[in-house]
Write a protein that binds this DNA or RNA. Sequence first.
DNA 1: GGCCTGAGCTAAATCGAATTAGCCTGAGTA
DNA 2: TACTCAGGCTAATTCGATTTAGCTCAGGCC
Lengths: 342, 342
Amino acid sequence: MAQRRVTLAQVAEEAGVSSTTASFVLSGRTDMRISPDAQRRVREASDRLGYRPNLTARGLRTKVTHTFGLVSDIIASSGYAGEIIRGAVDEAATHQHMLFVGETQGDADLERQLVQELFDRQVDGLVYAVLGPRPCVPPETLRHRPAVLLQCIADGFDLPKVMPDDAQAGRESARALMVVGHREGVYAIGAHHRTEAHPAGIPAGLARMNGVEEVMAEHGTRLAGALQCTWEPAEGFAAVRSLLDSGVRPRALICANDRVAMGAYQALQEDGLRIPEDTSVVSVDNSDLATWLRPALSSVDLPYYEMGRLSVRLLAEPGDANGVHRVPMRMVARDSVAAPAG
Amino acid sequence: MAQRRVTLAQVAEEAGVSSTTASFVLSGRTDMRISPDAQRRVREASDRLGYRPNLTARGLRTKVTHTFGLVSDIIASSGYAGEIIRGAVDEAATHQHMLFVGETQGDADLERQLVQELFDRQVDGLVYAVLGPRPCVPPETLRHRPAVLLQCIADGFDLPKVMPDDAQAGRESARALMVVGHREGVYAIGAHHRTEAHPAGIPAGLARMNGVEEVMAEHGTRLAGALQCTWEPAEGFAAVRSLLDSGVRPRALICANDRVAMGAYQALQEDGLRIPEDTSVVSVDNSDLATWLRPALSSVDLPYYEMGRLSVRLLAEPGDANGVHRVPMRMVARDSVAAPAG
DNA sequence: GGCCTGAGCTAAATCGAATTAGCCTGAGTA
DNA sequence: TACTCAGGCTAATTCGATTTAGCTCAGGCC
C-alpha cells in the first residue's frame, strides 16, 4: 500500500552529508554554519527524493507535536455550533497546528478518558468546550496542562475562559427596539429559560435579561412581560399563542433565539399580525434561520466561529490570558423591526 | 506547567523488572512468559505512579498511530452536515482512534497540503469528504494510502466511496404522495437544480428526479411540472409564488430540501392554502427545520451521521471495500401529506 | 614551529516505547 | 555426570527525527 517513506538519513546520504547537517539545513537553523554548497545539495536531495519529515518522530524528540485538541459535549452535532469547530480548525491552521476533535455527549467518564487520551498523544493544548454557557466541572487533568475553557463556567479553574457576552446581547436586543421608539407592550419570549429542568433559569438567559432590563430602565420603561419557556420553536409558538389568546396584542417581542422567533412568527402570522408593522421582533443567534424567515429577522450574532478561533488563539499565544474573555455579540439588523404604529 | 510524565522505564524500575517485562505485561501480550508475581508488581507500580504510555513514542515504533483524518471542503461550517463529523468521531472512538479534522474551504492547494500533513503525522487513514455529492479530484497522494471518499465522485480512484442514495430519496418522496392517492398537480420545486452555475443540474438533483419520475411512471402518471432553482428558502418561495401567480393551485409539492420547503410553506400560507389539506408537501433533508415548520414536514432523511460513521468504519475495517457504498435515504413521515381533496 | 581560532561538519546521545535475540537457572533425562 | 529444555527474564536494537558535544583542518599570529 504505502510505499516506504524517505527518511532524513536517506536524504543525508544522497547529499553526501551527515544527518545532522541535513537536519540543520532542512529545519532552517542558522546558528550552525553550513556551507552554501552543502545546503544546496541537501535541499536538492530532499526535493529529488520527495522527503517529508516524520512528525511523529519529531514530536517524540521535541515534545512539541503541533497539535491541539477540542473536546466538547455536543458541538459538532448541534446545528451552527459546528462553527466553533471551524473557527478552531482555522485558527489552528494559521499556527501550523492540526486539530483533534472529540465529542462526549456529556458522558463524564468518556470525557475524562478523552482528555487523557489527547494528552497521551502529546497535544500542545486543549480546548474544553460545552454547547451553551453553563457551569461545568472539567477533568482535573486540565489543571496542570495548557487548556482553555469555552462557554464553561468553572470557578476553581485558573485557566483562560472564553464566553459570549450575553449581557451585551440583551442590551443590543432592547436597544434595537428603544431606538425606534418602542416603550410599551414589549414582551420577552423564552426570557430566562425558567423551566422544570432549570427552575432558576440558565446563565445565558439571566445575563441577557439583565442586559434587556438595564437598557429599558435607561429609557425609563420596562418589559410588559416575560414568558418563560424552552428555546424551541414549538414553545415560542405556544408562548406567543397564549399571549394572543389572552387578548394581548404585543408591540414588540424580544425572543430568546431564532428558533423561538420562528415560533413567534408562526403565531403572529396565524392571527394576521404583520411583522414589523404590527409587531416588531428581535432575537439572538443570527443563524441562517434569521435570513430565511419572512420578513428577515433582526438578530444578535452568536459568535461561535469567533469563539472557536479565540480559544485556539489563547492556546497558541498563551501570554497572560487567564480569566474570562468575553466575545462581543452585536445586533445584525434586518427587516423585523419598525417604529410602533400610531 | 505539566509535571513530568512517568515513563515505562520508571514503572519497570519501581517494579524491579526490566522495561521489556513491563512492556509485555502492560500491553497484555501472552506470548512471553511472565510470572504472576512479576505481573502483579508491574501493574501495581503502573497504578501507583499513574503511568500512561506516550502514544507518540509508541506510534513511532509501531507505525500505527490509532489516528484518522477527516479532510473536507466545508463540512463543519454547513449546518447539519456537521453530523458527518460527529458520525466520524463516534466511529473512530469505537475503534480507539482519535480524529483529526481539517477544512479547506475548497482551496485545492490547502487541501493537498492538509492531506500531506496528515500523512506526515502518520494517520492510519483518511476520509476525504465534500459537502454534497459532486465530481471532484482528490489529491494524488490518496492513491497510495488508506483513504475513503465521501460524497466525492472521482472515477479514476480505486477507493471505497460513500454516497447518499439520492435516487432512493426521489423514490421515497414520490411514493409518499402516490400512496395517499396523488396523481395530478404534483410539482417538483428545486428539482435538478438547473441554474446558471449548474446548467445541467447537480448530481443529487438528477438522481432524485430520476427516482421521482420512476415511481410516478409506475403509478401511471407524471409530474405536472418541475421548477428549477437553487435550494434556498427565498428561491423556493419565489418558485411557488410564480406558480400561484400563474393561477396554478398545486396539489402536492416535492421540494428539493427542507429549506426550499420552508419557502414553499411561506408562499402557500401567504395565499391561505392549507398544508396538507389543500397542498401536500414532501421534502429531503430531515433537518431540524422539518420539525419546526407548522405543520411538521415529511422529509427524507439525509444520513450525514451514518455516512460519517460508515466512512470511518471502512477505514477501520478495510476488507474488500472498494467501490460505491450507498447509504439509504428513508422518508420520515410527519404532518404535511394528506390525500388530495375531492 | 607551536598555538589559537573559527568555519564546517559529524558522531553519538536522546526522546519513550516495542521488539528481537538471547542469557541464566534449575529440573528432567540419558 | 553431562546435556537438554523450558520457564522467566533482560540487554540491546529500533523507529526517525533533534540536539549536544566535539572533531578536523586551514589560516593567522607571535
